[in-house]
Structure formats: structure tokens, C-alpha cells
Design a protein around this nucleic acid. Structure first.
Lengths: 132, 132
DNA sequence: GTTGACCTTCCAGCGACTGGAGCCCTTATC
DNA sequence: GATAAGGGCTCCAGTCGCTGGAAGGTCAAC
């Protein structure tokens, strides 16, 4: 099947699929005309990649997950370890964003939001007074 | 003052400061030897930028905030509106990450994490069975 | 034979830096 | 005066994961 069909069936843009081929995540064979010829297995890999990416795994993590997936001798412990590391990263990111969020929310609460120039938000970003 | 001192005082890497000049966020004058000559006002701007960036504002938002900061005729409502928009973006990002986090956490909880190959995490990424 | 949808490659750009090469300037020491 | 260390300078390339667009080849339908 051509890339358009593979794209529709996997939910990934054709551009993204070409990119995944470029970085060696998928290796569809080629027809005589040079078109990529995707098989069911390729589509399954693309679906897998789409889902792993949607869980925030990096491309390199996806590469590892894909090889674990293909490896019938794998230990689920290896997958779990990878997932746990990623979970920790997500948690860290959420924590950082929450700190941001709370600080910003607090500042917004302090700002009158009228036509006067006084603004606690700007003041909190200042190390003194602007001169211009 | 030279870029090294401005970097130390603002907490920003020298490289970042050069980048901010390149994109027109700061415009320090030059000494005869070609070195950037930062004044107190420049340092104040850099501190401002560092704090605004640490709140997750984009460079373009920072540009707007900086011009509001410099504008004595500003209305705090404009700042507040910008901050509110940004807060909404942060909230959306947190919500997305939380969904990811919960899904992943759930999958991790289902995975035995032993030396056997069966893995609900990989299965959830699959649209069937891997063939290799 | 011509239209139009599809496919191909290649190059450039996004955001916000960061690293490194290769060079110049200044200061201190011998 | 030579030299070395520790700044500074510019410019180019790379990060991450795509995305857009140009220029051209292929294929099915009319």
C-alpha cells in the first residue's frame, strides 16, 4: 500500500512517516516506481509509534520500545523500567509547570487589570524600575 | 560592563544574551574594541527577560512584556490579558501531561515487570501482534 | 493527451538556545 | 618583547520532531 493509505490507517501524516523512515524507525520496501510499499507489519509499527509518541516517549525511547516489541525474548521488566523513567520525567515536567502556574496565577490575582500602569506582574519581573 | 559581568548579574549565559541581542530583545552599545558594553538598564532588561522566560512566556511574549514594561502609559489590563492567555496555555499543557501521566501510570501498574515477555504496555501500543 | 491526485527528493524553517572553531583583545608574568 | 591565560568576537552547526514548499515523476480517468 502507498504512503497515503498507510498514513490514513496509522493516523500519522505522510511527512511524518517519511521522516520516520529517514531516521530508520521504519523501513518499507519500494515498488519498481520508487513508491514506498507498506505492509500490514509496517502499518502496525506506525500505529505503535503514534501511540508511544502520544504518551510522550522520545523518538529514541520509541526506537527502544519498538525493538523490545519485536523481541520475543524481551523481559517486561525492561519495558517497565523505560516507562517508569519516562513517568518520572512527566512528573517533573508537571511539577515545574504547576509551580509556574501557581506563581503566575497569584500574580494575575494581584493585578488590577485596569487602565492604570501599575502592575504587580511587571514589577515581579523587575530588578528595580525601568528607565524608559 | 562586559558580557561576562552582565551574564553573572542577570543569571543568563553569555550565549543567551548574544542570542537575545541577535533577535533584538536587547541592544547594548559597543566599546571601541567591539565588546558589548552593558549598562544598568540592560542588566535590568536581562533580569526581566530571565524571569519572564522562567514563567514560560515565549520570546515573542517577552518582547511584548518588555515593551509594556518600558511604556509608562501602559494599561495593566494589557499585561493581565497576556498573562491570562499564557496561564491558559500552561493549564492546557498540564492537563495534557496529566492525561499522559495517568494512562502511563495505569499501564505500569498492570505490567508484571519480570523476566517474561508479556507486557500490557507494549500491548496497549499495538494494533495486534508484532510479527518479528 | 491532458487533467488532477498522488508520489518522489531536497531544502528550509520552527523555538530557544547551545557547542565549538577560529580569531582578536587585555592583562600579567617572565 | 614573548608568551600564556582568560576574556571577548563572529559564524556555523546541531538539538527535537516534525512541517511547509518547490520541482519534478507516476498513475488512473476522461
Amino acid at each position: 500500500m502507498n504512503i497515503g493509505v498507510a498514513a490514513a490507517r496509522s493516523g500519522l501524516p505522510a511527512k511524518t512517516i517519511r521522516y520516520y523512515e529517514e531516521i530508520g524507525l521504519v523501513r518499507p520496501p519500494r515498488d519498481v516506481n520508487g513508491y514506498r510499499a507498506f505492509g500490514e507489519r509496517d502499518v502496525a509499527m506506525l500505529v505503535f509509534l503514534g501511540r508511544a509518541r502520544s504518551m510522550g516517549f522520545s523518538i529514541e525511547d520509541c526506537r527502544r520500545l519498538l525493538s523490545l516489541w519485536a523481541d520475543q525474548e524481551r523481559a517486561s521488566a525492561d519495558v517497565k523500567a523505560l516507562a517508569r523513567e519516562h513517568l518520572a520525567e512527566i512528573d517533573a515536567k508537571i511539577a515545574g509547570l504547576r509551580t509556574m502556574r501557581d506563581t503566575l496565577d497569584h500574580l494575575i490575582g494581584q493585578c488590577a487589570g485596569d487602565d492604570r500602569p501599575d502592575c504587580p506582574i511587571l514589577e515581579s519581573f523587575s530588578a528595580g524600575r525601568p528607565s524608559g
